[in-house]
Design a protein around this nucleic acid. Structure first.
Lengths: 217, 217
DNA sequence: ATCGCTAATGGACGATCGTCCATTAAATAT
DNA sequence: ATATTTAATGGACGATCGTCCATTAGCGAT
């Protein structure tokens, strides 16, 4: 009711009228993420954010209640965007667990998800999670979701390979893959130019192949 | 001449007189690192640092020229401390390259090097490296040194295994190990309680074992 | 046309930021 | 004992921080 009120609504996007709180919220979150990516979370101030968004000072307090809550909302939005893309790759992989794992790896290391902007933002939120509970919550949520997707697939692979359901193989593979992907993001962050996605994918797959002989070619 | 001036000098450490610039510098760096570990680099201010160090405001400008230079000095000090410990483990491993790799893994994942304080500090400096050149320089230095140690050992292992000197095996193993260790630090940072050093070591060794059949048991 | 609601504005506020410097005090040299 | 040197002090400074609120302005309802 907040969204689809006006009589006629064009297909693409809203008309740019002066009163659009939803649009303002999105603009503030986007400006926050861009500012963090560009100058770091330490130098991301209220003034810089509203300047980039082209809005007035009071908007942050009005729509989010304060800077910290805006940061938390931005972290949540960023995490959701990540899974929107990831889920698409996973759904495209079908039901085969090996294909799912491959899709997760390819997605996580793709230009769409792993780039200068996103690695900087993610790194910043990771650090801020220690002192901002809102950020910590959604940071943990992302980890849990990713963990679940990967672990489910590995457990099925282990089961298909004759391992007992509760074998440590699946949990070891899950842990190793998550750590490897996290490390890739850090490596990309500190040296994006020298980073090769193909090599990265190859390395990750070779690690998994060591745990599941015959799989992951 | 600044250090060994006074006539008699006790063996252990300096007397705690009121004038000791070297001691003041160390106190400021230590207070900086502790503050970053405790409340994050974003909230680490000049006031908090000098309060923790028990010194006066002017000391930072006097000894380092400003806050940014103090941060850079703290990053350098932190990196040096890391290698002091790592080098000890490596030297204790002797000349066997496989033992050297094992030592690097055990050292990097040891309580001494990987703990709540150090992972928080390292994560903060990684993020700050994007906007502070001094930090970026010493951050890159650490990576280069670690890369060199690991790569040298892997190349020798590859050579002993009959691979050609310039095979990609060694560089792949180096890349994979570094990424894995970096990922472990991130994983520890976001969930120190659930982290198991033994499992971590096992995972890392299993990855390497997949690249060098018969080695790393 | 008027009213009511609320998104939006932008300046005021006290607090705190990092820097700088006049001053004090401790150690050394004369 | 006195002078010189320099580590150390702590307050002043303007800038900027995040928050808040009195006010304006856009939109639907009456």
């Amino acid at each position: 009711m907040v969204k689809s009120d006006s009589s006629l609504e064009t297909s693409a996007e809203k008309r740019t009228t002066k009163r659009d709180p939803e649009s303002s919220r999105r603009a503030l979150i986007l400006a926050t993420l861009d500012t963090i990516a560009e100058i770091g979370i330490t130098d991301t101030t209220v003034s810089k954010i509203i300047q980039r968004a082209g809005l007035s000072r009071g908007m942050i307090h009005l729509h989010f209640g304060g800077k910290n809550q805006l940061l938390a909302a931005a972290a949540r939005s960023f995490g959701e965007s990540y899974f929107e893309v990831l889920d698409q790759w996973v759904q495209g992989a079908g039901d085969d667990p090996e294909a799912i794992i491959t899709a997760v790896i390819r997605a996580d290391l793709s230009e769409t998800l792993m780039n200068v902007r996103s690695t900087r933002i993610w790194h910043a939120f990771r650090g801020a999670a220690n002192s901002n509970e809102g950020i910590a919550a959604c940071s943990g949520t992302r980890d849990k979701r990713l963990h679940y997707i990967i672990n489910t697939a590995f457990r099925q692979i282990a089961r298909d390979s004759g391992e007992s359901e509760e074998s440590t193989l699946a949990s070891d593979a899950t842990f190793g893959l998550l750590v490897l992907l996290e490390g890739m993001w850090v490596d990309y962050l500190s040296n994006a130019d020298a980073f090769s996605r193909d090599v990265a994918i190859s390395i990750v797959r070779r690690f998994i192949a060591g745990l599941f002989p015959g799989r992951f070619s």
